[in-house]
């Protein structure tokens, strides 16, 4: 009988951590909303349209607008921390 071969797994073999989404509010009046522009072309137009639609329906305590440096990279840790501090919900758009 031919000898068997033992080979090693080339993947990282990490069990992914399953994150739960943050709880959603049904009531948006009085909340602080942030719009995060992912910086791809025309993301700003999508977000501006959304902002208009939201403001027709809700009264926000504050509107924060931020923009990523590159659409090919995740938002920086500092930016995410700032958004977490300054807003109750964040809307982001992917331009194209």
């Amino acid at each position: 009988m031919a000898a068997k071969l033992i080979v090693l797994d080339p993947t990282a073999e990490q069990t992914p951590e399953i994150l739960q989404p943050a709880p959603r509010s049904e009531q948006l009046d009085g909340k602080r909303i942030a719009f995060l522009d992912n910086s791809k072309e025309r993301a700003s137009e999508i977000l501006a349209t959304l902002e208009d639609l939201f403001e027709e329906r809700y009264r926000f305590a504050e509107v924060v607008k931020r923009r990523k440096a590159y659409y090919t990279k995740g938002a920086s840790r500092d930016l995410i921390a700032e958004l977490a501090r300054s807003a109750d919900l964040v809307i982001t758009a992917v331009g194209g």
């Binding site: 033992i6 090693l8 080339p10």
Partner: peptide
């Protein structure tokens, strides 16, 4: 000490196909 999961296969060609 290597810690990667070990996989037993019948032989060389079987390993190639498994991958």
């Amino acid at each position: 000490m290597l810690t990667s999961k070990r996989i037993e296969v019948e032989g060389y060609h079987e390993a190639v196909e498994l991958f």
